[in-house]
Amino acid sequence: MLCCFVTQPIDDHAVAFLREHGVAVRFASRATMECVAAEIGDAQAVITRDLGLDGAAIRSASALRIIASHGAGTNNIAIAEARARGIVVTRTPGANSRSVAELTIGLMLAAARRLCDADRAVRAGHWDFRYDSGGVELHGRTLGLVGFGAVARHVAWIAGHGFGMTVHAWSPSVPDCVFADHDVRRAPDLPSLAGASDILSLHRPSDPGQPPIFDAGLAQVLRPGTILVNTSRGSAIDSRTLLAALADGRVGAAGLDVLPQEPPSAHEPLLASDRVALSPHIGGATAEALRRTAMTCARQVLDVLSGRAPPDRL
């Protein structure tokens, strides 16, 4: 019988869809790679979220035909090993882009209006925080988008149409016509974008092992008090550089949905900063996005197991 092994919970509609089409679904008993490698057995398909699938797990799955990544990223999947075995690897770009964009705007607001500090102040009985909150409006500010893919395009629309912000973006791979279609100004390079922005939002993944996008050189060109937002990858920011920029005022506040280590160590210095608004990698964790993403994975699995070429294969 055809079987799909799922490393972490996914939306129930996707599970029901697979079963209705004759594909049995088994779940890992624990979301660890050791457990996955021990339990994957003769499954022909895997749906994996941020856990990914390493080489040992792939080698232990003798019948595997497809690895469907529940998200746009494939950093934790041993793609070379999969390709060597002829295993299809797919992903789901765009399925959660609107949800990630909305959280990006939320983190901008949290940083600009010190919402985390305000919440703590009210709970502690410090109502006078309202006289010294030091918040700023987003209206009329310049937003710089590092990368201009699906998430950044949603952010640009919300920021421009909803908040009256001027939106610039930098991406070496997106053609000029896309910028024009979205009424977004194209920055010639990353330093120019950073130097012109009141808010800098990262949407271009930096793979682990590659240099971070936000490094000491980029921090030096920022306007004083720049707000930094990251909903892409934790590796896109050098944490020590961010802490130094917060200390000297080049970064006035930051909103981060992702961190270099997830979950972070209890000793992660960013956790102690009251000018950093944090969320636990929940950009795509809305009911709507999770359903779209899981259903996309389920359809990709069914395509491969039925002998069809799935969309968004690597």
Rank of each mutant, 00 (worst) to 15 (best):
T7Y: 09
T226K: 02
F17P: 03
G284A: 14
I10M: 09
M165D: 02
L278H: 02
D303T: 00
R49G: 12
V301C: 09
A43E: 03
H203P: 10
V304Y: 01
S206R: 13
D50K: 09
I67H: 10
I79K: 11
L242W: 08
T74L: 11
D257Y: 10
L193C: 07
R250I: 10
V15P: 12
A112H: 00
A31W: 03
P208D: 03
E288V: 15
R83F: 07
A244L: 06
E262G: 06
D198W: 11
D176L: 14
G71M: 09
R59F: 00
R49D: 04
V178Y: 05
A56E: 13
H281R: 11
F163D: 06
W127Q: 07
V301S: 10
H126Y: 08
W157V: 14
V36P: 04
T48Y: 04
L243N: 02
A219N: 05
A63H: 14
A24K: 11
L259Q: 10
A78E: 12
L109D: 05
L64Y: 06
L218G: 08
I105C: 07
A216T: 07
G209K: 11
S232T: 12
A169K: 01
G162R: 11
L243A: 13
S235G: 03
L246N: 04
F5N: 02
A254I: 05
P172K: 10
W127P: 04
A56S: 12
D176N: 12
E81R: 01
A254K: 04
R313Q: 15
L305V: 06
S171V: 03
R141A: 13
G106T: 09
S273H: 12
H139T: 14
Q261W: 04
A14E: 07
G149R: 06
A194L: 12
I213A: 08
A244S: 15
L107N: 01
A219F: 01
C297P: 06
Q261R: 14
I237W: 03
L109W: 03
R250C: 04
L270E: 03
L109G: 02
L193T: 08
L246W: 05
D11L: 06
L290Q: 15
A101M: 04
R185I: 13
M1K: 14
R240V: 10
A112C: 11
G41F: 00
A28H: 03
I158C: 01
L314N: 00
A31R: 12
I213T: 15
S171G: 02
A38C: 09
R275Q: 15
A244Y: 01
F214R: 13
L246S: 12
T166I: 02
H154G: 00
V301I: 11
S97I: 11
R275K: 14
T32N: 00
S197N: 08
G22P: 03
D42R: 12
T296N: 03
G209S: 14
R83T: 05
V229R: 05
R65S: 13
A124K: 13
R49Q: 07
I158S: 01
H168W: 13
H21C: 05
D11A: 12
V155F: 04
A95W: 01
C116A: 13
R130S: 07
P260W: 01
G217C: 00
D274V: 03
M1S: 15
T32Q: 14
V229W: 06
C4V: 11
L305N: 09
D50H: 12
Q220E: 14
T74M: 13
T32K: 14
P310N: 13
S133W: 11
A247H: 13
A80S: 15
S279G: 02
V6S: 08
D11R: 07
D117L: 12
